[in-house]
Design a protein around this nucleic acid. Structure first.
Lengths: 261, 261
DNA sequence: CGACAAATTGACCCAGATCAAGGACGGTGG
DNA sequence: CCACCGTCCTTGATCTGGGTCAATTTGTCG
């Protein structure tokens, strides 16, 4: 309910510096920020933490800032006329939010914190002017980030367009795993902050199906899942599932030997 | 088969100028190009026309240029390990191709002409340096174009994730219609250069389903379709279908009047 | 005109949606 | 600390949209 850009306005949290930011090593602008205390750093607003369920901005809000995720987890979704939501992505530390608003000057999706999270905001116009004038490397990094997101999205189309339910979930898990790894966390065990409902919506499946699939992957010995905690036991196996491998293996029930054998 | 960046190298077609380009009015750099004969214009390479089936670049090719579509129609797709293709988009005049390669310096999808088409190429590094130094408006327009593409893609997720087959096709037709309109062509009647197979793949459906759906939409009096030629008869009706409206109306068979009426 | 690819149409069936009940958690208040 | 409640998750039973297989039909191009 807590609307949107409101967050951007209650800036009194300026005491936080980039120096201890966990996302610093792969932040859009951190590298420059540490070396030369450039004028860019004055554009960064360290917002105060957001609670689970709070929205960073709503679809249709006026675009003003880009947001860099410092910690936590967000989901983005678009809402159609009838109010139906489609989850379009999950976002972790160092991801950039709000790029969709650059062209239309309105955010075209809404973003919600899935757990206690924090972001830095970056007034886009100031950022643009400043980075174009004084530090073009930063502007380039933005473009690279975008290019990278497009790569991710096109692969998601493969998932939604061509894969079966079990493959979709396996892909989803490996994708999260990879992103965790990229952030220096364990690729084998992590927390899934999002609800089953969100995963289902994101993958274009019913919640019940997702639930059954978690069970099935577990029966196949590929993962161990308990609510939000997930451990990947057999990454190769998961890759094999995506490639169309054993679609119905049960680990504990090998086929009984028969006389025919 | 005709590989890739090869096209970029056979540049002897420099005699073509932007002045008569059909895509000029909404080209990434045309506006500047006409006013001041900026140094940007020297970076634009008017490639010679491509034949149907020819590839602009392949997945994995080294990234060097962005391409602006002058005329024609392209499809982009990604290829997985097993060689399966997923169509990720269709592209018309003024669209920009190759953005996906900026980050990784490799094109991450392949692009193929669906009919005789032509493009301009733009060496990205030169373009970047030049536009950052002398004309930042252009660089901004690139970012806007990207932002715009992301908007399109997120909506596509809605289509693939939540919609039923008939809704997907209706959405697809209206999307093409809108883009034709944006380019100054008829929104009500146009040519679909892509094969049914490509549409099916793009929408995550079977070819047979697409075929049946074209028929169904025709029976409902919403469109008239003959192979590659399509006329939208009832745009509101199509919107209604997307919203979940009449899922099985037959136009020529109204319910017979009964005594109960 | 013949041959090959694209599109259509029909018949059948299964993955996954939907409907309907529980069960397990997490937060709140006593 | 426990009891209550609402929400999220799981599990089972049933139904159906659309995938798959197979057979024509229609274009298209040499």
């Amino acid at each position: 309910m807590e609307s949107a850009t409101a967050v951007a306005k209650l800036n009194g949290a300026k005491q936080i510096t980039c120096n201890y930011c966990l996302a610093r090593k792969s932040c859009l602008i951190s590298t420059l920020n540490t070396n030369e205390n450039s004028e860019l750093s004055s554009l960064i607003n360290h917002e105060k933490p957001m609670m689970k369920g709070q929205r960073l901005f709503l679809q249709g809000d006026n675009f003003q800032s880009l947001y860099l995720i410092r910690s936590g987890c967000f989901k983005s979704c678009i809402v159609d006329e009838s109010g139906e939501r489609q989850v379009t992505g999950f976002h972790f530390s160092t991801d950039i939010l709000g790029i969709d608003g650059i062209d239309s000057r309105k955010y075209t999706c809404e973003v919600e914190a899935l757990e206690t999270s924090s972001v830095c905001s970056l007034d886009f116009d100031c950022f643009k002017d400043s980075s174009l004038k004084t530090n073009q490397k930063v502007y380039n990094r933005l473009l690279c980030a975008v290019s990278c997101m497009m790569f991710r999205e096109s692969h998601l189309m493969m998932v939604l367009g061509k894969m079966k339910a079990e493959q979709r979930l396996a892909h989803f898990l490996l994708d999260i795993s990879q992103r965790m790894h990229d952030r220096g966390e364990s690729a084998h065990e992590f927390r899934l902050s999002m609800a089953r409902y969100d995963i289902a919506n994101y993958l274009g499946l019913a919640v019940e199906t997702v639930s059954r699939l978690f069970k099935r992957l577990e029966e196949q010995g590929l993962i161990v899942a308990n609510r939000h905690r997930v451990r990947l036991m057999d990454m190769d196996g998961l890759h094999y599932v995506i490639a169309g491998g054993y679609l119905d293996r049960r680990v504990e029930k090998p086929l009984p030997l028969t006389a025919a054998g």
